[in-house]
Design a protein around this nucleic acid. Structure first.
Length: 931
RNA sequence: GCGGGGGUUGCCGAGCAUGGCCAAAGGCGCCGGACUUAAGAUCCGGUUUCGAAGGAAUACGUGGGUUCAAAUCCCAUCCCCCGCACCA
């Protein structure tokens, strides 16, 4: 059923162009989302975010807004190019990736061309989204990069604007670099080491005659604890002239430094063994320390020489431990064992959870045996380093840094060393990175790298302001945005490689993907004119965009009538700013915040974004989707299997807020049944029923009205799970109760309800809703019909009356259950009038003293003294604060129903009362006797 | 460590801002019943413990506190998840 109606309605919608939005006199609603990257099909996670956009768009459309929901395709960056290259090279992994997506063998060839990726995936994505029932204005779609000359001009314009305002700057930047390909190596061009980034090492310079021995460290703050220097006796180091000084470093290091703005010339060789036992002057502390042998010096990491801080570095401690317990070993290196034994770790940092010497302690704790115990040592290092960094405080023996937290001291000490030329900087990848050409990558410092200056304090102020005036859904994320704005620093916005727009004033650079996607939501407002070819790309210039987006005057001839230009400007003014951008939470800390920054820089305040909605990841049965788990489900496959509506319901019900949404796999089946049975019910009951109106009809109307109000509220805040819960599942439950209560429904009420329920369902399950709508004889689409209106409930007593019936039935059942009697007749005695009068007073006063005072003003009540006070006590204790309902009347009207429910005869307020139960009755809780 | 979010009944997941109607919605699972030749679907009831009259006791990470009353407020504490970047 689902799949057959999907197509029918998708085609009709398209034919009727109901999702194509152009300015008119109505109020508008513009919703959008971060466009997806064109290197694969949509999986359920992305689809979840996009669907939130579609649901809110459909809802707003029914609410009477002129609703625009556009979509575009991101092609910027290296992944597509890299992947295409890998296909061209015939790499199995990459080819398999395509196969897994379901791309036929004969087509794989095409993917050698990056442009084919952008075409294929964008076309397919449109197909998949349409098949899922997305109501998108496809006339406005576009791809990014220079492949789209219009977009290209737009981004050029944006960057020139930023530059004019001084928000782009040039500087240096370390990147992961392949020495063979002579190119930066992005994540997707790596065989190994995804996510690894350049890491800064401090090079300590140890005076050694007329040269320096150089050791690299990540922890410059530990210089106060240096006791010796480590070299590997088996390694041959080199002497090199580096920026005019003679350095002793590993050969590998010398090569790397050439890429890091150092002038390097190798002039000689030094054997590690020859350095042993000699002394060097340690920087910062200006102490003579001895050079000792170790096995953990890696010539391909840092300089191949390591300074030793046994107090805080497990490696160093084990190195010393190994030597100190082995006289022969020392002597084999020609070392004086007694000198070696003199070395003692120097406590320099107080770390939380550790004593004076964290390294010594952790080695003991983990049972590290020697410096060759690599696995344990790595673990030890990780713990000591991270604890030391985050919780450590410098000891008294650290001079002016005493008492300073390590986090702070680290930077200061580094700076001091650099300023006094006792140290230098070098970068290494944070982990092993291998280029897909099989070469091990290094770090290169790229000069003339361009940055967007998000670090600028004045700009930050504007961004904060933008956050403040926005609605952020959920609200808690607002704080996060302020935090990100504060913490964000200058962003390297250009790359040497990949698809994109060339930096207009320096064409060797390509603008990277997070930087060319910050204000393109404005582009949607006019992109349909480009797609129609109304205006030619080559004629467009900055003045054009200045006119459209900034309202500046132009007299230029753009080859089109002035009216067209004016229309475009008007269109921008009509749609902008956007009302909502829906996104995954991963983009808070980059894209969404960039979007704000750039809006404040380019647009006037009235065009700043109105709201963001942020959602979590999608998990399946509580497990994260991931390739390794093999549970990445593609939208197209899922829809093909279950049909669009069940999938939409499944996703929308999976979760809300920033918490991860969870799909329970069996839910999709449940939902199918529910939808189908609603279809049957709606079609078979519309316009049928009895004419007379009963209390229960009013009750049902009241319940439904309440739900409409609640659903409205939920929808406005994108709380779709709540909306489905209340607007579908709860309503259905209430419907069941209603039918059970009255047998045949009231014609008017049930018909009204069928419309309401179907409409509430429409944003979530639009196809089946349309199908029902048509069967009801409606001529218009439900997608553009009017959302149900909430009507204020006049008589709250109706709802209470029904609760009362439920309560009585439950009480009777409870008694039967506990006593296990099988009775024939139930006698029910309602509370007397005077008790109700007391109840009403209690309802107003809400506490014992005030109530009793009020009640006792009444002569008649005083006569009942004790009974009355007992009653008040009971009412207050049980929180029975009820306005008056006519219990007897309600019971009488529901007599048949109650008898049917409990399978006994019901007698109301008979004089027969053998067990004296009558007096137990209190308002809303009648006395009951079963026999 | 910083920033953010959490710890609820078998599981998932509401509730917590505005304390009481919360033994705590709903879904799933499980148990019993109806229907059926049977299974499935559907419907009804149950699902902390005790209870021969609608009640009571214990429960919302842990320990305190405020209050007539706390899952909800305050304090302390433990644990979990996410982010800490130049990667779409």
């Amino acid at each position: 059923m689902f799949r057959s109606i999907d197509k029918k309605w998708q085609e009709r919608w398209e034919k009727a162009k109901i999702f194509e939005a152009d300015p008119d006199e109505r109020e508008k609603f513009f919703v959008n989302l971060p466009y997806p990257y064109m290197n694969g099909y949509l999986h359920l996670g992305r689809a979840f975010t996009f669907l939130r956009g579609d649901i809110i768009a459909r809802y707003k459309r029914m609410k009477g807004f002129n609703t625009l929901y556009p979509f575009a395709f991101h092609c910027t960056g290296t992944p597509i190019v890299a992947a295409a290259e890998r296909i061209a090279e015939g790499e199995e992994i990459q080819i398999n990736n395509l196969r897994k997506m379901g791309i036929p063998e004969e087509e794989i060839e095409n993917f050698k061309d990056p442009v084919y990726w952008t075409k294929h995936f964008s076309e397919k994505m449109i197909e998949h989204l349409k098949a899922t029932g997305f109501g998108i204005d496809w006339r406005r779609s576009f791809i990014t990069t220079s492949l789209n000359p219009y977009y290209n001009k737009f981004i050029e314009w944006q960057f020139r604007k930023l530059k004019e305002k001084g928000l782009v700057a040039i500087g240096k930047h370390p990147v992961i670099w392949c020495p063979k390909c002579k190119n930066p190596v992005g994540d997707h061009a790596r065989l190994e080491g995804e996510g690894e980034t350049p890491q800064e090492f401090t090079l300590l310079k140890f005076e050694f005659g007329d040269s320096y021995i150089i050791a690299a460290t990540l922890r410059p703050e530990t210089i106060f604890g240096q006791t010796n220097l480590w070299v590997d006796p088996e390694i041959e180091y080199v002497k090199a002239r580096v920026n005019g000084e003679i350095w002793i470093i590993s050969k590998e290091c010398a090569e790397k430094l050439k890429n890091q703005e150092k002038d390097v010339e190798i002039t000689g060789k030094v054997k590690g063994r020859d350095l042993l036992g000699k002394y060097v002057k340690a920087p910062g502390i200006e102490r003579e320390i001895i050079i000792l042998p170790s096995t953990f010096c890696d010539p391909d990491k840092g300089t191949g020489i390591v300074t030793s801080v046994p107090s805080d570095a497990p490696d160093d401690w084990m190195g010393i431990y190994d030597l100190q317990r082995d006289k022969e070993l020392c002597e084999s290196f020609g070392l004086d064992w007694n000198e070696v034994k003199k070395i003692k770790p120097i406590p320099i940092i107080k770390t939380k959870g550790f004593g004076d010497l964290p390294a010594v302690e952790i080695c003991k704790k983990l049972g590290v045996r020697s410096q060759k115990d690599r696995e344990l040592l790595e673990k030890a290092k990780k713990e000591v380093y991270s604890m030391g960094f985050y919780t450590g405080v410098m000891n008294d023996n650290c001079g002016e840094y005493a008492g300073m937290p390590v986090m702070e001291a680290k930077e200061k000490i580094k700076k001091m060393l650099l300023d006094s030329k006792k140290a230098d900087i070098m970068y290494e990848p944070s982990g092993n990175v291998v280029c897909r050409c099989l070469t091990r990558c290094i770090v290169r410092i790229v000069k003339d790298q361009w940055f967007i200056r998000y670090g600028d304090p004045e700009w930050k102020k504007e961004a904060h302001k933008a956050v403040d005036r926005m609605k952020i859904i959920p609200e808690t994320v607002k704080k996060q945005f302020h935090y990100v704005v504060e913490w964000l620093n200058d962003w390297a916005c250009t790359r040497e490689f990949g698809l994109g727009t060339k930096l207009p004033w320096d064409k060797k650079w390509v603008i990277e993907s997070l930087s060319d996607s910050t204000i393109y939501m404005a582009f949607y407002t006019i992109s349909k004119y480009f797609n129609e070819g109304t205006i030619k790309a080559d004629i467009i210039d900055d003045e054009f965009f200045d006119y459209i987006f900034l309202g500046k005057k132009t007299e230029k001839d753009y080859g089109v009538p002035k009216e067209i230009l004016k229309k475009m400007r008007k269109e921008f003014e009509y749609w902008y700013p956007f009302d909502l951008r829906s996104s995954g939470k991963d983009l808070v800390q980059n894209h969404l915040t960039f979007c704000l920054f750039n809006h404040t820089a380019i647009f006037s305040e009235k065009y700043w974004p109105r709201s963001f909605a942020v959602n979590g990841w999608v998990t399946i049965d509580g497990k994260k989707m991931s390739t390794s788990r093999g549970n990445v489900t593609l939208l197209k496959d899922h829809v093909a299997e279950h049909g669009a509506d069940p999938v939409r319901m499944e996703l929308a019900f999976a979760g809300e807020g920033v918490d991860d949404a969870n799909i329970e796999t069996q839910f999709v089946e449940t939902v199918k049944e529910r939808l189908l049975s609603w279809y049957d019910f709606a079609v078979n009951n519309y316009g049928r029923g009895r004419e007379n109106k009963m209390r229960i009809d009013q009750w049902f109307e009241a319940v439904v009205n309440n739900v409409i109000k609640e659903v409205d509220e939920a929808m406005e805040n994108l709380m779709f799970r709540t909306a489905i819960q209340k607007g579908f599942f709860d309503l259905q439950r209430n419907l069941k109760w209603y039918l059970r209560r009255c047998g045949t429904p009231n014609k008017e009420v049930i018909s009204w309800f069928i419309e309401v329920q179907t409409k509430i369902l429409a944003p979530f399950a639009p196809h089946i809703s349309e199908e029902i709508w048509e069967k009801l004889g409606k001529k218009e689409f439900i997608s553009v019909s009017e959302w149900p209106e909430y009507r204020e409930i006049e008589d709250e007593g109706i709802l209470r009356g029904e609760e009362y019936i439920k309560g009585v039935i439950n009480d009777i059942r409870e008694i039967i259950k506990v006593t296990k009697i099988k009775g024939k007749i139930v006698y029910v005695y309602t509370a007397p009038d005077w008790a109700w009068r007391v109840c009403e007073i209690v309802e107003k006063k809400r506490n014992f003293n005030d109530s009793i005072k009020e009640v006792m003003k009444d002569e008649e009540m005083r006569k009942r003294g004790k009974t009355v006070s007992k009653l008040i006590n009971q009412l207050i204790k049980n929180r029975i604060f009820s306005e008056k309902i006519d219990e007897e009347d309600i019971l009488k009207e529901s007599k048949n129903f109650i008898e049917k429910e409990i399978g006994m005869k019901l007698e109301i307020n008979k004089d027969y009362d053998p067990k004296n139960k009558k007096s137990l009755a209190i308002p809303t809780k009648p006395a009951i006797y079963i026999e």
